Simulated scan of single mutants.
Amino acid sequence: MANGQQIAEENLAAFMAWSTSKSDDDFRGYVHRGKLKRSEIATECGFGKSALTQNPAIRSALENLENELRAAGILPPLLASLPAGQRLEPALRDTEAKQRRQDGQRLNFLEQENAALRAELQAAKQMLGRHALITEFLEETGRMPR
């Protein structure tokens, strides 16, 4: 059975392997409120979220990683590091994007249904025209055409 120091070393090795296996685009998927999302990191590394805060080696490695990502422009800068008087504007969220996407899907569905109904109506009109000719012939001759 491993003692606490061995587990801490294993967790650090898992974190380092995880951090080196990710690209800049991968890290963008972990950004949450200006930091990397701790719960997802812990889950993927296979240890508890508390290891990120209680293990000093992992904590410093995570801080270094976040600082590198901030320098690369992947993470936004910290509010404390901004010059006085400059405010970081929160990203404007498009609140109507979901509704527009749903409207677009609904419009597409309705257009397809409309095209299908037009084709069905055209076929029905052709059948009606054919039956109108037969009815007219029956009225004039009293006989059924072959």
Rank of each mutant, 00 (worst) to 15 (best):
G29N: 09
L88A: 15
N67C: 09
E111R: 11
S39Q: 10
C45P: 04
L52E: 03
L75M: 05
P90G: 12
R38G: 11
S50T: 14
E89D: 10
P56I: 14
E40L: 10
R118K: 13
A71M: 10
L79F: 14
E68V: 12
S39H: 11
K35Q: 15
R87K: 10
R106W: 08
S81M: 04
T95H: 08
N108L: 12
L107P: 03
R106M: 06
Y30M: 02
D103A: 07
I74E: 00
C45V: 09
S81Y: 01
I58K: 00
R38P: 03
S81F: 01
A84F: 08
R33Q: 05
L82W: 04
N108A: 14
Q102M: 03
E113W: 12
T43P: 02
E111M: 15
L117W: 03
S81I: 06
P76Q: 04
A116T: 10
N55V: 14
L78M: 15
A115F: 07
L65Y: 00
E44D: 05
G104R: 08
L107I: 12
L62H: 09
A91I: 15
G85L: 02
E96A: 15
N114F: 11
G104D: 02
G73L: 03
F47G: 07
R28G: 00
L92K: 09
L65E: 01
A97F: 08
E40R: 08
E63A: 10
E68R: 07
C45I: 08
R118C: 12
N108M: 07
Q105I: 14
N55F: 08
V31K: 01
D94F: 03
G46T: 04
A84I: 04
S50D: 05
R106P: 02
A91H: 09
